[in-house]
């Protein structure tokens, strides 16, 4: 049956509305269409709406409550160490359980440097993979390749750690690092001693671990860019690369930054694989090939050995530091997004 929209029968005007001649349409006064009768029989659901918003609000508040609770626990657990060292804890380099002298700086440094290193290595690769998969990959390869990239995310981090110890570290020690020392030695970032394990190895393994999440999110953002944007660029005579730059990446850039932030979040908190290759020595060295330590690693390694209350409290305060660093980094990233997008008038697709 054909569905027609009828003019509403406003009281007093009904006689002015004429039925089309010879219409087989039922008179709306006597018998209504089933759809209309159904819709009119429904009451307004304002009450359900209110319940719904209350439930949703509750869920949202839960998140705040959890965050506040974690913060409270971290602060109260690190009371001893906070009282002893004060704010200086975050900037001290000492880590001497025997004499009860603690500071978080080498760990904060290790976490930040290894994560940034991971981003520097992973982001170009991840964006490249995503662009390849969405824009250039022949159709039959697309699904398998995407699947394999995503599979990387499912590997437990201890397996990454083992692989790093047996494959990555020897490779770095024997081939990659000597090359870096030769080429980039002048910068002071890559100098002897070369142990294989160390900050650089930590960064590389983190890069491999965050690659899947960054690339699969980037891929999603890129495929959400409307085809019309690609066509707009092509119609102006863009080559494929220019089309990708102008019609795709430019529109997707905010989403890509979001993907990077998520990857960074994962890198900051990653424990196991990093612990296995970063060297576990709480020192700050300019050379990336030197040994380092990260916040998550020291907590995992030393928590069970923490023999006295101050030691335990210092470790918990490192947890607090990790919490704060994560929040600060995320806030900074958000400011960055804001700064990047402020110049250009708008958000991407």
């Amino acid at each position: 049956m054909e569905i027609r929209i009828q003019v509403p029968n406003v009281a007093g005007e009904s006689e002015r509305i004429q039925k089309p001649a010879g219409s087989s349409f039922p008179d709306s006064g006597s018998s209504q269409s089933p759809a209309r009768a159904f819709l009119q029989s429904r009451r307004s659901s304002a009450f359900a709406d209110r319940i719904f918003s209350a439930v949703i609000l509750l869920c949202a508040l839960c998140i705040f409550a959890i965050v506040a609770l974690i913060l409270y626990e971290l602060v109260s657990g690190s009371r001893l160490s906070i009282d002893k060292f004060g704010v200086a804890f975050f900037f001290r380099s000492a880590w001497d359980p025997v004499n009860g002298d603690y500071g978080a700086f080498p760990f904060i440094y290790g976490t930040l440097v290894s994560s940034i290193l991971a981003l520097i290595i992973a982001v170009p690769l991840a964006v490249g993979v995503a662009v390849f998969l969405t824009e250039m990959c022949p159709g039959f390869l697309r699904a398998p390749l995407a699947f394999v990239t995503e599979l990387l995310a499912a590997i437990p981090s201890v397996v990454y750690g083992l692989w790093a110890i047996f494959v990555l570290v020897p490779l770095l020690r024997d081939s990659v690092n000597p090359f870096l020392i030769r080429v980039l030695g002048w910068s002071g970032l890559f100098v002897e001693p070369n142990y294989g394990v160390g900050m650089f190895a930590g960064g590389v393994i983190l890069a491999i671990m965050i690659l899947p999440i960054v690339s699969s999110l980037t891929r999603e953002v890129i495929s959400a860019v409307p085809q019309a944007q690609r066509e707009a660029a092509l119609a102006l005579g863009a080559t494929r690369w220019e089309m990708i730059r102008m019609g795709v990446l430019r529109n997707a850039r905010i989403g890509i930054v979001g993907a990077i932030i998520l990857g960074l979040g994962r890198a900051l908190g990653e424990t196991m694989a990093v612990t296995m290759v970063i060297g576990n020595r709480p020192e700050i060295s300019r050379s990336l090939l030197d040994l380092g330590y990260s916040m998550a690693s020291v907590i995992a390694n030393e928590f069970s050995e923490a023999s006295d209350n101050l030691y335990l409290s210092a470790l918990i305060e490192i947890g607090l530091a990790l919490f704060i660093v994560t929040i600060v980094v995320n806030a900074l990233a958000r400011v960055l997004v804001w700064a990047v997008t402020r110049g250009a008038p708008v958000r991407g697709a």
């Binding site: 409307p226 019309a228 944007q229 066509e231 707009a232 660029a233 092509l234 119609a235 102006l236 005579g237 863009a238 080559t239 102008m246 019609g247 430019r250 529109n251 850039r253 250009a344 008038p345 708008v346 958000r347 991407g348 697709a349």
Partner: peptide
């Protein structure tokens, strides 16, 4: 690419670049 530089096109649905002024 050469062809499209010589033959301009206006699409049925407007498609300005949203992130550009």
């Amino acid at each position: 690419v050469e062809i499209r530089r010589r033959v301009g096109m206006v699409f049925q649905r407007p498609n300005p670049f949203p992130t550009m002024s």
